[in-house]
């Protein structure tokens, strides 16, 4: 395939489900649920993209369609140049998947055995497998865990194992579903470092679905926000922050307690002794506000707070 061909192309994809509900003792009603409703986006090779959205937004339906498990109702998908639904098994060799709540490892077998089995399943030449395994064991610090049955591993240890398992056949594209859920701060940090390494050094395209905006903030230059099966945002984290309706905050410490400052382009939202909070639209530059403050008041200290990404996303969901 051409190197400039995107890793993922999604064009106007729909996916509906028939949901049957029991209504009364015998009657059943049928309802059509649009899980994915006209989704279009591209992901370039080597990108690391965050797929965000509330529960039931259509994230996992989308990932299932991208892996070929689920057939779309309409629309076109191409993943590394293949139609996932038609070429599921061929695609499987070229992608890696980590489903957050399900294990791709063998629960009762030692980690080592799971990795050996995956070599057979993906038919990886022994030397390449050994090299990749050695690398991942070192990067993910799996050395001491290799002979422990998966069920006896901690959540963080298991997740490291899952990610190694998904990467052992050296896929071009990796899907990760909630990779850091339930992990402590240290484990999260370690895992994020590893993902960045994989993305940069191997050029692996990574698609991350997550609720943890920390993951997104530290890993993804680009964010896709899905709600009600539709794409409600596609752009950089900065652009997401500068969306209409969101605000940046200037926190200013004056020498003495004073009445509300008056500055063009910003409004005071809170006063606490000598400290005051001013709010300005995300799209606007903070420089004129800072300049006015410095000229007209006795400023001791000053800080600019970007909008919390949580708030921005929550606002997006409300609009969607």
């Amino acid at each position: 395939m051409a190197a400039d061909e995107p890793a993922i192309e999604v064009v106007d994809v729909h996916r509906t489900f028939d949901v049957r509900r029991r209504a009364g003792r015998l009657r059943r009603t049928r309802q059509v649920v649009r899980a994915v409703d006209g989704l279009s986006f591209d992901v370039a090779r080597g990108e690391m993209v965050g797929l965000l959205g509330p529960n039931g937004a259509g994230k996992s339906t989308t990932v299932k369609m991208l892996t070929g498990i689920l057939v779309p109702t309409s629309g076109a998908l191409r993943v590394v140049g293949l139609d996932p639904a038609a070429a599921r098994t061929r695609l499987a060799r070229r992608i890696g998947v980590v489903f957050g709540q399900r294990s791709g490892l063998w629960w009762d077998l030692p980690l080592r055995d799971s990795f050996a089995l995956l070599r057979r399943i993906y038919d990886v030449p022994a030397d390449r497998h050994a090299a990749a395994l050695a690398e991942f064991v070192e990067l993910l610090e799996l050395g001491e865990l290799m002979d422990i049955p998966v069920r006896a591993l901690s959540l963080g240890q298991r997740m490291r194992g899952e990610i190694a398992a998904a990467l052992l056949h050296e896929p071009e594209l990796l899907y990760l579903d909630e990779p850091t859920i339930g992990l402590d701060v240290v484990s999260k940090g370690r895992l994020r470092d590893f993902l960045r390494t994989i993305n940069v050094e191997r050029g692996t395209t990574v698609v991350l679905t997550t609720h943890d905006l920390g993951d997104v903030e530290r890993l993804c230059r680009r964010v896709l926000v899905v709600d009600h099966g539709r794409l409600v945002f596609d752009g950089s984290l900065d652009a997401l922050r500068r969306l209409d309706g969101t605000t940046r905050t200037v926190v200013v410490d004056l020498a003495t307690s004073s009445p509300q400052v008056e500055v063009a382009g910003a409004v005071v939202t809170r006063v606490d002794g000598p400290r005051q909070w001013l709010s300005l639209p995300s799209g606007a530059s903070a420089a004129p506000v800072v300049a006015q403050l410095a000229a007209a008041y006795d400023v001791v200290d000053l800080a600019i707070q970007e909008p919390a990404i949580e708030d921005v996303v929550a606002r997006l969901y409300q609009r969607g």
Partner: peptide, 21 residues
């Protein structure tokens, strides 16, 4: 429990995996 999904994203027929597991 969704473990079938894990099998469906591997390049070996799901039936073979279900039988062998």
């Amino acid at each position: 429990d969704g473990s079938l999904d894990t099998m469906l994203v591997r390049p070996v027929p799901a039936l073979v995996q279900v039988a062998a597991d």
